[in-house]
């Protein structure tokens, strides 16, 4: 188990999550080693299928960095996303995947520290949880 480094797919809204990621980079903050950033124009772009596909194709955890509610550039994007993440979690429950493997985290452009802290915590949590057994390597 000690060598298991969970793969995290992080969908980043270009309005908040991505700038936060860039800020974390500028401040040279720690981020997990096995991290794949997927920039999206708005968290509302993320299909439920993308969440599942990320898990299917190798992610141990999926995180969506979305704008805070009432701060969506496109008004409804993060609200629509919330519904979809809920739906994806229902599906995950049916498959028998742990709910912790999928999470929305709200950030703003200036939340570089939060971005890093959250991902490091997530990686620790996933390390304890072990690999996603549903992924098709």
């Amino acid at each position: 188990m000690s060598t298991f480094e969970p793969k995290i797919v992080a969908f980043c809204c270009e309005q908040s999550g991505l700038p936060a990621a860039e800020m974390a980079k500028t401040l040279k903050l720690k981020i997990p080693d096995n991290l794949e950033l997927v920039p999206v124009p708005c968290s509302g772009r993320i299909e439920t299928l993308y969440l599942l596909k990320a898990l299917e194709s190798g992610a141990d955890g999926v995180v969506v960095f979305a704008c805070y509610e009432e701060n969506c550039r496109y008004l409804q994007g993060n609200v629509r996303l919330k519904g979809r993440v809920g739906y994806a979690k229902q599906i995950m429950a049916k498959i028998g995947l742990e709910q912790e493997r999928l999470e929305i985290f709200h950030v703003a452009t200036n939340s570089g520290v939060k971005f890093s802290e959250f991902l490091m915590q997530k990686a620790d949590q996933l390390r304890l949880l072990g690999p996603n057994l549903g992924k098709i390597a």
Partner: peptide, 21 residues
Amino acid sequence: EKEGALLASALRMARQKTGKP
């Protein structure tokens, strides 16, 4: 197409978990 793909993905993962892809 959307719901079908979701179901397919879920089925693949569920079967993968049981070791019978």
